[in-house]
Design a protein around this nucleic acid. Structure first.
Length: 228
DNA sequence: AACGACTTCAACCGCGCTGTA
DNA sequence: TTACAGCGCGGTTGAAGTCGT
């Protein structure tokens, strides 16, 4: 019901030929992108609309970079993935010229291994007592949008947002995540103090802009786009 | 050189969301 | 309000390329 039919039999599938690319590019340059279900028929391509859309968005549209992901881009992908999870289109939106498919492939083939190796090294440090014990903290799903928001870290893998402009109102619940994903860490002494009740307040609060700066995401659309 | 194992990434699939009649 | 069509997304697949023996 209401679902785009899968590319049916009789239509071309698999790799696109240079001639198909030329036809699609020429059609979109003339008519613009959109109405993908009409594109194959009107352009004279023996492809389904979804296939045309994918080909255009990921490979043919102007301004795309291909390959050679820089160290800066890689760092940003890692930070954004910690923040957003597998929301590839949002991550790609922070990397001009990169597509969600490219980011997703890069993560699955390169970065996931790197991050896992890094996590393993961190775990060994913890086992050997060379690093502070950490609480698990990550990101949150909320509709808060205030730039005056404070971020409160708590133990048990929860992070909460408070909108100071709205009188300390809790905007939305936090989300528990494994400690391996923790982009922050705090000392065991501080956790113990809070657990003993010596700390009535959460350990830290950051101005929202500081958090964004830390994550390298100062100009993210922090409201509904990121936290739907 | 030949072959199998492994890696990469373009492309497909199915689901959920949104707009519209 | 409901049904439907279209779009966009994330997960997955498999062909092609690369590496190791």
């Amino acid at each position: 019901m209401g679902r785009t039919p899968i590319c049916s039999q009789g239509l071309n599938r698999g790799a696109w030929s240079p001639e198909e690319d030329r036809i699609l590019t020429s059609y979109i340059e003339t008519h613009g992108a959109g109405k993908w279900s009409n594109v194959p028929k009107e352009a004279g391509l023996n492809r389904c609309g979804k296939s045309c859309r994918l080909r255009w968005l990921n490979y043919l549209r102007p301004g795309l970079k291909r390959g050679n992901i820089t160290q800066e881009e890689e760092d940003l992908i890692i930070r954004l993935h910690k923040l957003l999870g597998n929301r590839w289109s949002l991550i790609a939106g922070r990397l001009p010229g990169r597509t969600d498919n490219e980011i997703k492939n890069y993560w699955n083939t390169i970065l996931r291994k790197k991050v896992q190796q890094g996590t393993l090294a961190q775990a060994h440090e913890l086992e050997s007592g060379t690093a502070d014990q950490t609480g698990a903290v990550r990101t949150m799903a909320t509709r808060c949008s205030s730039s005056s928001m404070l971020i409160d870290l708590k133990v048990d893998g929860e992070i909460q947002l408070k909108d100071t402009a709205a009188g300390d109102q809790n905007c939305s619940g936090g989300e528990s995540v494994p400690s391996s994903d923790n982009p922050f860490s705090f000392s065991k002494d501080m956790v113990d103090g809070w657990m003993r009740g010596e700390e009535s307040q959460p350990f830290f609060s950051w101005e929202f802009s500081s958090f964004a700066s830390f994550m390298g995401t100062e100009d993210l659309p922090w409201s509904n786009d990121v936290f739907p």
